[in-house]
Design a protein around this nucleic acid. Structure first.
Lengths: 209, 209, 209, 209
DNA sequence: AATGAATGAGTTTTCATTCAT
DNA sequence: GATGAATGAAAACTCATTCAT
């Protein structure tokens, strides 16, 4: 990703500083509204230095994207490895995503508002991360079906998109309502609420076939 | 919106032609990647003429956005007025959204990929359409709760976001997989699948409290 | 060459105005030292307009180059068609080149100082003009050999380069000595001098084998 | 020229290594296309180190230029000191120039393609070398005239430019045709050919006045 | 209404040069 | 001597928008 992957502390630090600044500025102004000089100013460095660590403005976005999805994939694998009940896995996943927002709402804003924006951005390399993540969510749903706790007739892939789409839309709501800081209680409550809704459905049980 | 609201046939036609061209080009290149001259070329007119009908490039996007959400709101109001069962209302809404994709995937692509992404775009005027639509979806959920067919403890607003987010994420999947043409069967099937999943939940009934 | 080859007077004029400005600025500052904004200022237009007529700064240089060599080739063909004595043809060619300097020293400066120097500039398309011109000069030499007035053993190609190289180096001398304006007498004198030297050689006749 | 003129072996070596690298890179990419970092990479050193030995990129070019013309001047003085026949002196000079190309075509390419390019480059200091060399060539011609072996009426300065220009144009031909390696036979042949042409002229003797 | 020439602000990126280590 | 991180000036080029015709 970045030119310098030396294990020098400085180099790592600077990379991180620039990325954090980029997240902040992208969140505030949007990817296209953000100038590289804004990012440099936010990072407290000369803007030429951004190009020592990254080849282009777009690479910054790609780097943020990759970090985030790689991290999400790691968490999903960890959750799956736990061998808990599938319902619990779903809750854990939702909890992780909502907590990500709490911990770094700007990063989530960038992911939702900017990454998806550039069609050109979705090249094969980047889209793979996407796919991998959804494969894992789908896997959780299938595990529930195999265990007999989730409906058989549900299309697991559809369910995966539904779960993720629900989470993302709620976070978009927070973003648009400028809810940058959100309490742990609210996060927990949102997690419970959405998990219950998705697992049990809107309709009351007897309606079920 | 547009400078000319004369009811001259020509004027209306040209407005429509430009908007359709804009949808096409925005879908292909993204809002920021699209040049006004591209849109004019697609519409088969001189690019200066775009400014006879619209004040700016952004106004094109806003116009598309408004048309779409106004239309969605109309449909939601129509659905609510039907006084059918809330479950059926949910299904109708999902069906409408998926059919919108079938009829004009580029328009949906623009709505998902471009509109949601420009922070600056969400001014008070535009956000009202958003809010109105979600208020209506929320209303449907509340009607179900009042009728005793939906769970009481569900936060209706959350549910509204979950439903819409699920739909949008599935359509994003279609977009990213380049599924520009999709059969009516697939649409119907997707509608059934998602409606059932959202209404009945993932988990099998006895798990319900 | 230019985007607009319409036969509108304005369009042609503007193209010419920009090219003349480019010649002036390239001559003054060199190709790399010249800013497109300098050229626009010299032409009295907004610099964005340069890009209406030419795709890039480099295209300006290529255009100047082409015009000049095409013109030179035309003159050579005209000279050859005259069916004069080969010696006279050589004189005419030298006369033309020196007079070109007199009429537009900046253009010659650009040709000598800038065009010849950009290695990347010599792509196949551009080099063809070069080659064509030298083929014609070579042809004149060969005509003299066939007529029996020029030495048989001389390599005609070498001779062609020698003639042209001599002319160009003398003009470079004028450029470096800042002799921007030069009288017709000087031009005629230089033509005679160089023609005689090249035709008769440095050495006095009896030395000839 | 260079900051360090210590006679330490290392220092001299490194200076030479950098200059050779610069010649190579300038020949490949042109002066303006060459990055200091390219030169450093070619030399196998850190690019900051270039600035220990040279004050600027331009100084590299000036250094190459000076070395070459100083060397040429030395050779011319040596030739003149030999007190041979002027015809032979001309031949020796041409031979030296052509052999320079054979020995280091990149250096000649830089001299022809890059040095002349930057008008700013021709400051008084640099132009003096030029002038000195041409003064010496002119001197040879004048010696021939005084000895009665060269035509009196020839302008010696013109003749000097003609000779040098012929040589340079032939070498430019080799450069443009990518003739990087050239046999000693070809060099000798070219030398004979050009010397004969310049001394005896194109035209056959009886045409002489 | 229609055209497209004209405008010029705005931004990414490059790269020579400096300097702390 | 050697390194390469850091600096920031500089410029080509783009393109939304205006406007004369």
């Amino acid at each position: 990703m970045n030119k310098k992957n030396t294990n020098s502390e400085d180099s790592i630090d600077k990379t991180k500083v620039i990325l954090d600044a980029a997240i902040q500025v992208f969140a505030d102004k949007g990817y296209f509204g953000a100038r590289v000089s804004d990012i440099a100013k936010e990072a407290g460095i000369a803007y030429g230095l951004v190009y020592h660590y990254f080849n282009s403005k777009e690479e910054l976005l790609i780097s943020i994207f990759k970090t985030r999805w790689t991290n999400f994939i790691d968490v999903l694998e960890y959750i799956i490895a736990s061998e808990e009940e599938p319902q619990e896995m779903i809750r854990k996943m939702i909890s992780f995503l909502f907590n990500s927002y709490k911990n770094n709402p700007s990063m989530i804003e960038v992911m939702i508002m900017d990454v998806a924006k550039t069609s050109r951005f979705f090249n094969d390399e980047n889209i793979r991360h996407f796919k991998d993540a959804f494969r894992l969510i789908t896997k959780i749903v299938k595990m529930g079906q195999e265990k007999g706790v989730f409906h058989q007739q549900t299309d697991a892939t559809f369910a995966a998109y539904a779960i993720y789409g629900s989470v993302e839309r709620i976070m978009l709501h927070w973003i648009l309502d400028d809810m940058k800081s959100i309490s742990q209680d609210e996060i927990n409550n949102a997690t419970d609420m959405l998990t219950t809704t998705l697992l049990n459905g809107l309709a009351i049980c007897p309606k079920n076939s």
